[in-house]
Nucleic acid binder design. Structure first.
Lengths: 116, 116
DNA sequence: TCATTATATGCAAATATGCGAATATAATAA
DNA sequence: TTATTATATTCGCATATTTGCATATAATGA
């Protein structure tokens, strides 16, 4: 998905769920189902939130078998490196991030998508 | 106004009018009426857009006589320096910025608030 | 005092957004 | 093929946001 204008990018950032998703994606490429589980999101909410980030060009996804893996997009980080850095720091400092990362870690210990 | 959380700040950025205002405020402290005139905003739209930026803690204002002067807030730039830098660059690159700054320049040549 | 100017705000209509529930699609496995 | 799993999308509702218009407030100056 083509990188959007700043207004759209900021609008995509302006939501707690989407910021939590971006916080998890700072470290790893992640499968949709891992994000959904780690953040306790409904399936439709997870998918829709990711679609908004994807449409804004902030994340990119690749499909492998039945799984979709998402990560911060190369277009975004190369076009807006300063914003990307700012976002990284902001995400790290979100009150929700510590717990969310712990949840993610547990989920990945028990089961990874590839083994499901 | 107290600096808000990142979600609120990004939400405030997620609007074309507010980004245009921030683009003008990168260079100068400005009077509300200058912003209104330079961007051809309705009075209520200018006032309300500034209120949203103010409530998010992104800008601060001081009242002098009948005029209100706004600028990027110290709280914002010291708490989120990277974001502040990213914003500065993004604002400079907005397609609207060149014209808006020209308009502002003309307005300030003809009349400054202090002389009105 | 009253008139003027700058700014803020209440209200209402239009529009946008967020989210669950249901449904659709796509890939895999049996 | 059918069943299952992962993901995406559509629908509908509740809520939030945007914006103009009208009005209110506040400062100034005559």
């Amino acid at each position: 998905m083509r990188l959007s204008d700043p207004e759209t990018i900021f609008k995509a950032f302006g939501d707690a769920t989407r910021l939590r998703i971006l916080a998890l994606l700072q470290d790893h490429e992640l499968c949709v189902c891992e994000i959904e589980a780690a953040l306790s999101l409904s399936q439709s909410n997870a998918s829709r939130s990711l679609t908004i980030l994807k449409n804004a060009g902030i994340i990119q996804s690749r499909k492998q078998a039945q799984w979709a893996y998402c990560r911060i997009s190369d277009d975004f980080s190369s076009r807006y490196p300063e914003l990307c850095t700012a976002l990284e720091k902001i995400c790290a400092e979100l009150p929700s991030t510590k717990n969310d990362k712990d949840s993610l870690k547990k989920i990945r210990e028990i089961q990874s998508c590839e083994k499901m």
